[in-house]
Write a protein that binds this DNA or RNA. Structure first.
Lengths: 124, 124, 124, 124
DNA sequence: GTGGTCTAGACCACC
DNA sequence: GTGGTCTAGACCACG
């Protein structure tokens, strides 16, 4: 069963996107594997303290990307291939890195200062 | 006059927040200084291709944070102190760094891999 | 035994309501009589290709309207009086007629055009 | 401006479909014409006593059928051609007639009885 | 003022 | 129990 420990919603970003990203990051990290069972709408809804529809929206988008298979009345499962995983990995990494680099550069930081900051805040 | 070159809106984040962030990052970078004049709502609206109300909202929030002041007619000026700048710097840096570290750690990357990626995508 | 030949589910209307209507229309038509036996939930479920719970819901509503009675084991029987039949007849007829007349009038048809159309589509 | 006088919601059918049908019937009747302005979401929502989103859903479906043109911040207008009107007319008429004939036949009525009933309930 | 999107809760059919 | 749909209300960007 896919874990949602350490998940806390933050505002400014739509919740359904945060859920979607959480799952995609788990896929990239290898903690979510092909065939894994997803928590049901209700269960996850209760766990995260959000509306079942918000969960559903995240799941529906994942299904449209062919990463999930849902059937009414039955549980939902991950449907992953190595190729899909690599594609997600590539897109997520690039996006994260480019965004943060853009912000930090605009604030006038040097690469060395960035390295230093990451080192400081990296949770081992 | 504060520059908005290199500013392009990206969707997913409210535009008024993007404008707010752009200005705050300029403050941190030192390219926006105490006393600098802000473009008028009308001018900036035309420049960014954004509705005047959206500009108005960003300016209003900056005013509520005591970072700008409207004087004599429609012109607005930055009202900064070293203390305010440091506070913004601290909050922006921490937020950016923590967010990206959280994402990348969740994807299972090591600190070294992150350094390598930043090095790769850093625009000199 | 009550017949469900010619019954096909159509979407847009809850299936349990369609079953309810099918039975009520049979009552009005006189093909369903007092004392007639209803198919068991399991049998009808298989016959219509519908979930047993859905059948159960339709039967429960009929029971609440005092039109059927469950006796001796799982078998259910129609419990009808002339008065009940007339009441159902009245309500169904009026509802159908008024609904369709409302639609067709709203589309600007004359009574004669409606007669012509019914004549055209009436299956002898 | 398109009229919603005489419109009352009835349950059993999704409200957004009732709104959609009301508009289509107006198109067929010729009371809604190409270029006509639609009431705004909020106005119609208040008028009918339903949620703005329900109105929006009806409008969105009409837009997907190319019967409406919507632009953010601006009003919505009908975009009709004679061809579209005839197609709607055909589909609505057939559906209404076939549905009511099916119901009434199932209740055992003769064509003459149906004519009589329509004559009785027809509002002149 | 306008339309578009996000979150929320209830109901339905199905397993 | 499961996922799918409908209705509801608040917020956003825009004219």
């Amino acid at each position: 069963m896919i874990s949602f420990d350490n998940f806390t919603t933050q505002d400014g970003i739509p919740i359904y996107l945060q859920i979607l990203l959480h799952i995609k990051r788990g896929i990239v990290a290898g903690t979510i594997l092909d065939g894994d069972e997803l928590p049901s709408r209700r269960v996850l809804s209760a766990l995260l303290g959000v509306n079942p529809n918000t969960i559903q929206k995240a799941y529906r988008l994942l299904e449209e990307e062919d990463l999930i298979q849902s059937r009414s009345g039955a549980k939902s499962f991950m449907v992953l291939t190595e190729e899909k995983v690599q594609k997600i990995r590539q897109s997520l990494l690039e996006e994260d890195i480019k965004t943060v680099i853009g912000s930090l550069q605009q604030m006038g930081l040097s690469k060395e200062e960035v390295f230093h900051l990451i080192d400081k805040y990296w949770k081992t």
